[in-house]
Design a protein around this nucleic acid. Structure first.
Length: 440
RNA sequence: CGGAGUGUGGCUCAGCCUGGUAGAGCACCUCGUUCGGGACGAGGGGGUCGCAGGUUCAAAUCCUGCCACUCCGACCA
């Protein structure tokens, strides 16, 4: 992408409404624009990151055996009357009427709808286990939206729903998601810690929140420091193997980790003082087992081996990709701007032509640009007629992992400079070497 | 939902107290000089001062009502 042809509205001043660093940087980097309280448009750069995050979420959901579908944002109130939640949900649910005065709502979550889909088609234990997920916009009419994408009213959510014959099956489904979540966040450069959690209005009695530690986190969390060293399961983990999966979950739940709601002071103080972590955290995922809470009232039943019908055991599993974009920035930035972990970066490489219009620099940049594009590498070419300093500032702000500085100084030796955003390390090399290095 | 605050060119803000017909910096357009960490000069364009009423010869400024947004708290993915 040539910057001269792109839409990247960089802000030099920080808009006054933005209090936390991720919100500030997203506005300044031209990633998002607020349209109303807690409602944001994703501008091209922000949308690219959101899509990268979703792609990782999707890959790991698929790997764990979940199946993607897509449910609508607008739902019928009747469905929610079946579960009893239409009255129970309160003002957080955006209720609307269509032209026929029918009660509709903008979905805050999809347990009812997925249960209706399931019961319409599934009759037998032979069709289990089943885990269906989608990535769709949700709306929760928060009393006080704040912190930009961190607590918006409209937000993107990956929600998965598992169906099993009994608790044992449901536990395995829970474990699959548990492990998939560890992998998902790790791939985005985040260290997540599963913490015992309150199950809240979703209901149920087995629940973990996946928390990443950040000073600006909304919740107060407590855990054992050793979690920060734990190895995340690799891509070869066997999701079908009940025992091995359980072993991973057992390990990741063996030490103390809890949010303030579930905090047990005595248990926490039993940890060696130097191992205690008391910090702020951002919730990026939440998983629940809730048994037959919805399947019973909504009559989602399957026939078992014994020919007897019974309600399915369900769980639901949420990740907020739009919140994750903000969380990644909270975890990875410096004074100059965002520092994207490569897997979620909007572009992998940014070419900075330090002398736009110079015959040699233009030629080298064009060569780099077409070669990198040819290899399918996301490349942003800063080809505007700006001074070097301005280009450096822009590049650092939007946080692209690799910058190639092409200027007369290094070009005189036939070299360009490859700069790594994360630590500022620079290395002189030929154009050919730079291309080879970045396509490795 | 309780408390506090803010709405003035695209952005950050001054002007309001003490009414007199709207300003700065950045951004934008033109020209020139610059060019390795957010350049400089000259010229130029752009604002029903959140909305609606009221007071007044005169309202960004005073009064009333409304709307929007932000922050703290309670609540929550």
């Amino acid at each position: 992408m040539r910057l001269s042809r792109y839409f990247l509205p960089i802000l030099r001043d920080t808009p006054k409404e933005a209090e936390i660093v991720s919100h500030r940087l997203m506005l300044r980097a031209g990633m998002i624009r607020q349209e109303a309280a807690g409602i944001y448009a994703f501008l091209p750069l922000g949308f690219r990151v959101l899509q990268k995050v979703c792609a990782i979420v999707r890959e790991e959901q698929d790997r764990s055996g979940a199946i993607e579908l897509l449910m609508p944002t607008i739902q019928s109130a009747d469905l929610w009357r079946e579960s009893g939640r239409y009255e129970a949900y309160g003002k957080e649910m955006l209720r609307i009427k269509d032209r026929h005065e029918r009660d509709m709502l903008y979905g805050p979550t999809n347990e009812e709808m997925i249960t209706a889909i399931f019961r319409a088609y599934v009759r037998s234990y032979k069709d289990l286990p089943l885990n269906l997920y989608h990535i769709q916009w949700k709306f929760r009419d928060e009393v006080r939206p704040r912190f930009g994408l961190m607590r918006g009213r409209e937000f993107l959510m990956k929600d998965a729903y598992s169906f099993d014959l009994d608790f044992a099956g449901a536990k395995h489904a829970y474990n699959r998601m548990f492990v998939a979540y560890l992998r998902t966040f790790a791939r985005m450069g985040l260290r997540s810690i599963p913490m015992v959690a309150e199950s809240g209005p979703i209901g149920g009695n087995l629940s973990h929140e996946f928390i990443i530690l950040a000073d600006t986190g909304e919740s107060e969390v407590f855990c054992d420091k050793e979690y920060l060293e734990f190895e995340v399961p690799g891509p070869d983990v066997d999701f079908e193997h009940i025992g091995r999966l359980q072993a991973i979950v057992d390990k990741w739940t063996s030490l103390y980790a809890a949010t303030s709601e579930k905090h047990d002071v005595a248990a926490f103080e039993a940890i060696a003082p130097d191992k205690r972590v008391s910090a702020r955290g951002i919730e990026v995922g939440h998983i629940f087992y809730f048994g037959t809470k919805y399947s019973e009232p909504m009559k989602a039943v399957v026939t078992g081996h014994d020919g007897v019908e019974r309600p399915v055991h369900m769980g639901s599993y949420g990740i907020g990709p739009s919140r994750l974009v903000a969380a990644i920035i909270e975890a990875s930035h410096d004074d100059a701007g965002i520092v994207w972990p490569e897997p979620v970066a909007p572009f992998k490489v940014m070419i900075l032509n330090l002398k736009q219009g110079g015959a040699d620099t233009d030629k080298a940049c064009e060569e780099l640009y077409s070669a990198l594009n040819g290899k399918g590498i996301d490349t942003l070419y800063h080809d505007l007629d700006e001074r070097p300093g301005a280009k450096f500032a822009t590049a650092d702000l939007i946080g692209v992992p690799w910058q190639i500085l092409v200027g007369p100084r290094s070009l005189a030796e036939g070299k360009v400079e490859l700069k790594r955003r994360v630590d500022g390390a620079r290395e002189l090399m030929t154009v050919a070497d730079a291309i080879a290095r970045l396509s490795a």
